[in-house]
Design a protein around this nucleic acid. Sequence first.
DNA 1: ATTTACAATATGA
DNA 2: TCATATTGTAAAT
Length: 160
Amino acid sequence: MTAASIPTSDGVFTAWFSDRGLARLEFPTGRLEIMPVTGLTRRQQRWWRIATDAVLTVLKGEDPHELPPLDVSTGTEFQQSVWEELCRIGAGQTRGYGEIARALGRPGASRAVGQACGANPIPLLIPCHRVLAADRKLGGFSGGLTWKRRLLARERAAVA
DNA sequence: ATTTACAATATGA
DNA sequence: TCATATTGTAAAT
């Protein structure tokens, strides 16, 4: 796994690449960061370029035109199916935890869906921030609720 | 093999 | 509005 910085006007994100694709994306960590973009394979550099573009686009509140391959091999089967479902939510749209659960054929697993969201290694590109509670209020967010609010606001999504 | 912790939700007071 | 019961999965014992 190799790290590479993704600088944005909202701070410096850190992307981790395996040989299978983008495996992890970290929010800006207060201070000290900037990992070199060197040490990446040619393929990883290409993914980095795509990932950078995608992150900037999502930060603008729009849908990325292209995504790098996402290496979700760290997740369980259930988690991966949740993440896949999350990717079907477009910018500006929202779904509920229970809604996702039903879409997966597991009504009642809404709480488990929340867990899977928290375990999402690639926020923004896997839009876990578009999942709200049944009453349309923010549930939680691994990167901090401030981020969730900000992202949804930029997409002009309706939140209670 | 069991128990515990969650980014949930429906229900009843 | 608040307390409680019920729920599925993952991680820790």
